[in-house]
Amino acid sequence: MKKRTVVLAFILMLVAVGSLAAQQYYIPLISKGFQHQFWQAVKEGAEQAAKDLGVTITFEGPESEAMVDKQIDMLAAALAKNPSAIGFAALDSKAAIPYLQQAKAKNIPVIAFDSGVDSDIPLTTCATDNIAAAAYAADKMAELIGGAGEIAVVVHDQTSRTGIERRDGFVNRIKSKYPKITIVTVQYGGGDHLRSTDLTKAIIQSHPNLKGIFGANEGSAIGVLNGVKEMGKIGKIVVIGYDSGAQQIAAIRSGEMAGAITQNPVGIGYQVVASAVKALKGEKLPKFVDTGFYWYDKTNIDDPKIQAVLYQ
């Protein structure tokens, strides 16, 4: 008797939830995660766009960025629902290709987001323009060191797209716009705090006149900060970071780090849904949708607009 009631209640709950999803355009978003603050911010943006444009979305992602197979199961289930369009941030593009081909065969537009998908199936990619963002960091660096002197760059790696684009964005802007600034070295620390710290200390050791260092992701930025701290150069070397995280936020509040670039996850989520709707209406999409970025430092870190895109 009791058992039957429980089962009945469960079925009713499912019906209630299920019926909510039965509306016009339906666009599932498969992200790289859902628990992380960054992804929650992407979801928030997507939900806002769904509300503004009158479409239904769902947002799912595996529990960790290692679970490539679980993400593919999610993509398969999303395809089974005959969606109007799909938003997808691939953990591993190559593993997902068979399913993207199915989407193409079923004429379901695919919109890539975050790091993009290594395939020509997605109609567009909504992501941070890393080159523009890193170039902006270069402008800030030039401003803070007075437009002349020696600087260094610590990047996470030379193989990932973010590593290459952030490095090139920064280096090329300095070379083209600030002839009095020399980049003495570009080093790679794997995004690892400790390795980046050691690298930074060696750079400072061999370049005593160094005026600034740019760390191209969270791990690199923290490593740079630690290295500068351990060499007793806080206040003498300008440190600029990328992304956020508890340590970086604390360092910016205390002034040990001059500032950092943050991506705009809310904008990423919004643009994915907006692009999908455009595709469904037959509008032509650009190959890349720049979702924007922010510069944040001590002065604007408590601005609600900045707080919305920072994560611990």
Binding site: G18, T58, F59, A77
Partner: peptide, 10 residues
């Protein structure tokens, strides 16, 4: 799979 098909929030 079923919960996903029904679009139950994750």
């Amino acid at each position: 799979n079923g919960l996903r098909i029904l679009s139950v929030p994750q």
